[in-house]
Structure formats: C-alpha cells, structure tokens
Amino acid sequence: MSVKTLTIDGKMVTGIAGETIFNVAWNSGVRIPRLCHVGGVSDVGACRLCLVEIEGQKKLMASCMTNVEEGMVVRTNTERLQSHRRLILELLFAERNHICAVCVMNGQCELQDMAEELGMDHVRMRYLFPKLEVDTSHERFGLDHNRCILCTRCVRVCDEVEGAHTWDLKGRGVNSLIIADLGEPWGQSDTCTSCGKCVQVCPTGALFSKGRTVGEMRKDRRFLKYIVTAREKHQWIR
C-alpha cells in the first residue's frame, strides 16, 4: 500500500493510493460539501458540490471520484467553488417543492444543512413547482417525490448493499423520477424487502418512515459501515 502525500487547502495530508480526495480530506478534518456521496456505497459524482480545484488542471474535479496523487495541490473552498456550490443549491431548491417548514426532516435534512453551511439564503431563479406524487402505499415507509433531489443514494444502497435493486430512475433530465420495480406503488413491489436502508440514507425527507410529523424524522446510517466492514473484513464491529 503506497502512501501519497498531498496538500489540501494548504495542509499537508497523506492518503493511500486508490483513496479519493474526498475521503482523505474528510479524514483530515476538511469537510468538503456533498449530497450524493454516502460512505459504504459507490460514488457517482452527480451532485457536483464536492468539486475541487487541483493545481495544474483546468477542469474542476469531483473529489469523490478522483484519487489522490503524490504532490497534488488541492483547494476545496475557493470563492469560485463557493459561488458554484451556492448556485447549484439554488437550482436544487428551485427544481422541486422543498418546503422545509412542512417537512418531516426539518432540522435534520442534509439539503437544508448544505444551504445553511454554504450561505445560500435565497433562490434567485424561478421555482419550477412541478406537480409530483407522494407514494404512501408501503406499510412502513413513504416516498415524497417533491423532496427528492435524485442523488440516487437509495438506488445504490438497495442494489449494492441490500442486493434487491428495487429502485431505479425512470425518464431523464428534469423529468427523472425514482421508481420501484415497474413504476408501481412501492407497497406493491415484489422485490422490496422492506429493509429500510434507502430511507436511512436518503439525505432529505423524500424517503421517510410513516407516522412521523414535521421535524420528527431521524435517520441513522451507522448500519452501512457495519455491514460493509462485516462483508469485506468479516468483522462485526458495532
């Protein structure tokens, strides 16, 4: 295992070959913003919040998809990156109906956190106000498309950790929607094991447990590390 030394925001840090900039940064206390990344499943580099500047490269790179290299000089929080991240959040808030005040995840939501952390205090573009469904057909969980940011964490955790691949995306572009099986109501899915992993990894209130009202939903995804370590190292660490 070869060790790579690099600079992140002026700080000398080390990582192991094959590790992403994102992981190395977080391990050394540099919290790069993210929405689609969740530890324990594969990365897709879709939310673009974790983009960083790498010296000598013209393009901004998704830190969750880029491995560390010896001598790399990485900047994670320049003014340009901050302004891009705020604008991306504005796009997200304008895309669907994110009404924090009436959301089960109010106060716990990663999207809400991101807006606060990155100083996105109002949306300068038009809200799109799409008319979207809420699927409460499952006996324990609900899916509110209004709050979905299409990060596909649920798709990945269901496929990679649970192995069911109940979820996927249908359509494309701004019309993409999370679907269970052939788009039938979640409660009628043949493949869903009702394990609830998707609910726990969902960053917003799009997937939620029934019976929770505004601000009451709590999510816990420690199970991911537990399962992944168990599977890879045969160690069951609680």
Binding site: C47, E95, L150, L169, G171, R172, S176
Partner: peptide, 11 residues
C-alpha cells in the same frame, strides 16, 4: 437531451 445525472445540467 440532458440525461439528468448532474444537477447543473439537469436543472
């Protein structure tokens, strides 16, 4: 024609 994967292009 946007595939919808990344936010900047999708929205």
């Amino acid at each position: 024609e946007s595939c919808g994967k990344c936010i900047p292009c999708r929205v």
